[in-house]
């Protein structure tokens, strides 16, 4: 994840409390989505950014996961994400995100 984005995530977790922050990603593949989730839950796996060694455990979802789709207004979702739902490998994304959350998320309900 971009170093500046990591810095912002860390600041928001400090400011609002990690239990009040949710990260929503839009990565194009399961692996990249999983890397982003791992970064904000278990720390930067590439050891490059401000989240290196910081286990925030934030709740993190991909916008194409069913939990997100369920909560978002259906028309808006269709307009904004509908086509990408057809294009992306949603099953792969769900699998990656679920496994990262199961292992590292401290604030996932």
């Amino acid at each position: 994840m971009d170093l500046e984005n990591q810095r912002r995530v860390k600041e928001f977790a400090d400011e609002f409390g990690p239990e009040n922050v949710v990260v929503v990603v839009g990565a194009s593949e399961g692996e990249a989505a999983g890397l982003a989730a791992e970064t904000v839950e278990a720390g930067d796996p590439t050891f490059a950014g401000p989240l290196t060694g910081v286990q925030l455990g934030l709740a993190c979802y991909h916008i194409c996961e069913p939990q997100m789709k369920e909560e978002v207004d259906a028309d808006v979702y269709e307009d904004q994400v509908g086509m990408m739902e057809m294009v992306l490998d949603v099953d792969d994304i769900v699998e990656e995100m679920t496994s990262i959350r199961d292992e590292f998320c401290k604030y996932c309900g």
């Binding site: 194009s28 593949e29 692996e31 990249a32 890397l35 086509m83 057809m86 294009v87 992306l88």
Partner: peptide, 21 residues
């Protein structure tokens, strides 16, 4: 391998999805 997918292929899928619509 960098997790960014096959960019042109996604573009064709997007165009095809629009063509379906």
């Amino acid at each position: 391998p960098a997790g960014a997918g096959d960019v042109p292929a996604s573009n064709y899928k997007m165009i095809a999805a629009l063509a379906v619509k």
